[in-house]
Design a protein around this nucleic acid. Structure first.
Lengths: 198, 198
DNA sequence: TTTTCATTCGAACGAACGTTCGAAAAGACG
DNA sequence: CGTCTTTTCGAACGTTCGTTCGAATGAAAA
């Protein structure tokens, strides 16, 4: 095993434990037990508990942002681009539950420069969705504020970690499609129309 | 000041501090400072830190559940009842941000019997929404799973604490209406129809 | 006043925490 | 083999935590 692989193992395991028990409730001794490394040994790979959380969030969020950009790049239709953004977010979330739970739930557990760095990523990701919304929505529709719409969407997607079981009766792909459908048309599809959406 | 008023003051202040800094990061000494009570003095009113969190969540959630039942009681139209449920939840949330943030964010910070008690309330509240959804949705619409729809709604509502400012440009009433509209019809109101919804 | 009960709190306790340090072990290279 | 570097880790340090305890205070009753 190389150095990088051992660091990776530490980060993945830590994400699982943080997700299961919360960042602040997790002790370095818990991580020592879970990883099989010694307590002091972990400090050879990581500055401390805070940097551990930061590395998990930074890696995960960077992957989310670049993945989203790639996912929407191929499409030109604004509505389709929005739909792909949603599918990518939900797909990534369900495939990396621990990391995404840590990212969503422990947003305020960082401080100082590390917090700022993560928030830069967050802002760029929010801006991306806002621009997608501006393109996809009819200009006329001012009934819902753009920020409200954006954070409502993030809310329904990021809440997943509180209830969703990827091995349950709703498959990740179905969940993604249903959330996209819900966000686009709501639960009360206006009576009849338009079944032509791929 | 009576005993009850002092307990109330402790609970309200603790909810604010928990909301601001998180439950686990908050020390009893922080609460002592914020309330003006002495460290030991708080233990005359409360068994400990865990019971403090439990009391905040129990009182708040009980109020949410009974308030929701009252809010929908007057209406008979299923869609209107659902709309009132949403408006009540968002209205209560924005009016009690600290408590609701503690309720949403610190759901896993309790354990044992106290966790079970809160989860009983949670289950009954979820069941209430599920029954409202069953009544409000066209029987035919199986495109979105009922649990997915329910938790998507809870997600967009409970996510509020991460971004919403009640003193910002969107008033609480507007937020409630917009989230209800979003959940019912989505961001892409199907072109033309039906402006007849009260 | 004296007695009783409710309420407050300074001071301390034991436990658990994140982190450090110096030495030991393991590998790489001559 | 010996030497240098990388990696591991037992043991401890200093701090902070939630909680307790017994004495002090205040208010009401007799």
């Amino acid at each position: 095993m190389t150095y990088d692989e051992r660091l990776e193992h530490l980060l993945v395991t830590a994400a699982d434990v943080f997700a299961a028990n919360g960042f602040h409730s997790t002790t370095m001794r818990d991580l020592s037990r879970a990883t099989g490394m010694s307590l002091a040994g972990m400090y050879y790979y990581v500055e401390g508990k805070d940097e551990l959380l930061y590395l998990i969030q930074d890696r995960c969020f960077t992957e989310v942002v670049t993945g989203a950009r790639a996912a929407i790049a191929a499409a030109t239709d604004p509505v389709e681009r929005l739909r792909r953004f949603i599918r990518h977010h939900v797909g990534f979330f369900t495939a990396h539950m621990s990391e995404m739970k840590v990212l969503s739930h422990e947003a305020e557990s960082l401080s100082g420069d590390r917090w700022k760095a993560i928030n830069r990523l967050k802002r760029s990701y929010v801006d991306l969705l806002l621009s997608l919304l501006d393109s996809a929505r009819p200009d006329s529709d001012a009934s819902v504020d753009r920020r409200v719409a954006a954070f409502a969407l993030f809310g329904m997607m990021n809440w997943i970690y509180t209830w969703y079981d990827p091995d349950g009766s709703v498959a990740p792909n179905q969940l993604a499609d249903q959330l996209a459908e819900l966000f686009m048309r709501g639960i009360m599809p206006a009576a009849v129309p338009a079944t032509q959406e791929g």
